[in-house]
Simulated scan of single mutants.
Amino acid sequence: MTDYPVSAKRRRLHPAAAPIAVGVVGLAAAVMVHFIDPNEPGNYPTCPWLMLTGTFCPGCGTTRAVAALTHLDVLGAAQMNIFAVAVVPFVAFWYIKWLYQSFRPPKATRTTMASPVWLYLLLAAILLYWLVRNLPFGAFLAPGATWFA
């Protein structure tokens, strides 16, 4: 067997490379929607699910909600997609946990970002939100619906 020189050996990325890359991409996307208004027609594509079915997907309004959050308009963001706004603290917690664990020494056991139970509960909540926002009594969950007249 040939022993390759050290410089030719494959180098591994630091374990924090993935969470840092995800954070940079997320921050870049937030900056983009802050400066390129998603409320102006033509700036972003229409939701394919909405175009095909005429119903709202769980993500409809999320881009406008993120834009409102970057302008510190929490109520406006909630009116676009209340579920996305409600999930932000949980996603932030899991992201920070992932980033923190990537800088810690490796353990003998594999760590996960979230327990599978929480991920199944999140999936169930997304499906329930998707269903309710498209029923007549859930019209207040439609993107841009006004809650206070």
Rank of each mutant, 00 (worst) to 15 (best):
E40K: 12
V117P: 01
W118R: 02
F56I: 01
R12W: 15
F35Y: 15
R64V: 05
Q79E: 12
F140I: 11
T2S: 11
A92D: 03
L13M: 14
R10S: 13
V132S: 08
Q79F: 02
A92M: 11
F90P: 00
I36M: 12
S7H: 13
V33N: 05
G54F: 13
A78F: 04
W147T: 03
I126T: 13
T2D: 11
V74H: 05
P58F: 07
M113S: 09
V6G: 06
C57W: 11
P5I: 05
W147C: 02
T112P: 03
W49T: 14
M80W: 13
Y120I: 09
A67T: 05
L121F: 12
Q79L: 02
T55M: 10
T2V: 13
T146S: 13
L131R: 01
L131V: 15
P45F: 10
T70Q: 06
P41C: 05
V22M: 15
A30G: 12
A86R: 00
Y95S: 01
V33Y: 10
Q79V: 04
A124F: 03
L119V: 14
V25P: 09
T109C: 00
I126C: 04
P106Q: 07
P89I: 00
A84H: 00
V88H: 00
L52E: 12
T55R: 13
I20S: 11
V66K: 00
G138R: 07
S7L: 11
V117N: 02
L13G: 13
L127K: 00
A68I: 02
F148W: 15
A92Q: 03
F83D: 00
T63S: 05
A68W: 01
P105Y: 10
G23S: 07
M32N: 08
P38S: 05
